[in-house]
């Protein structure tokens, strides 16, 4: 993990994780993303929702791109600047199924798709891109201006 910080006046933080696709690392990511979100100015409940969304995106990579294999590479970049928090997740697993990454109506007792719903509900922008180099998930959360 690497971190950098510029000035408090114009917040700029960048955190990069390069990790194996093992669920044990999720708790480390959650702790760091939570701290990053609070430092960037999100309220506690917004911060918790953001942590959940990023956790769900990583869990999707482990579950669907790598089919539960725990020894594959995942790269997560977190960037706070210019009034928003941006996240980029790269993996080299199977590409996401286009029919499963769209948001769906929930509120009943269906089990599938909860994670994707959370991501789309919490984040302001979400996109998926697949290339010969692998899969790339990007998402952003806007920060409200501090008074």
């Amino acid at each position: 993990m690497t971190t950098s910080e510029a000035t408090a006046e114009n917040l700029s933080m960048h955190v990069t994780f390069v990790m194996r696709s093992h669920p044990r690392y999720l708790a480390v990511v959650r702790a760091t993303v939570g701290q990053l979100a609070v430092t960037a100015g999100l309220e506690d409940s917004e911060s918790r929702a953001l942590v959940l969304a990023i956790d769900e995106a990583l869990a999707n990579v482990i579950r669907h791109a790598y089919h539960g294999r725990s020894d594959q590479r995942i790269e997560l970049e977190c960037h706070a600047a210019a009034g928003e928090l941006k996240f980029r997740i790269r993996d080299s697993g199977d590409p996401p199924d286009p029919t499963s990454i769209g948001s769906r109506e929930i509120g009943c007792d269906q089990i599938g798709g909860l994670g994707t719903h959370i991501i789309r509900d919490v984040m302001d922008t979400v996109s998926y891109r697949t290339s010969p180099e692998g899969n790339c998930f990007t998402a952003a959360k806007r920060l409200r201006r501090q008074s």
Partner: peptide, 16 residues
């Protein structure tokens, strides 16, 4: 807890 309740509400499963 309030944090866990938030997840139930976010996923709308508090109703079931």
């Amino acid at each position: 807890s309030p944090a866990v309740k938030e997840v139930f509400h976010l996923t709308h499963v508090h109703r079931i």
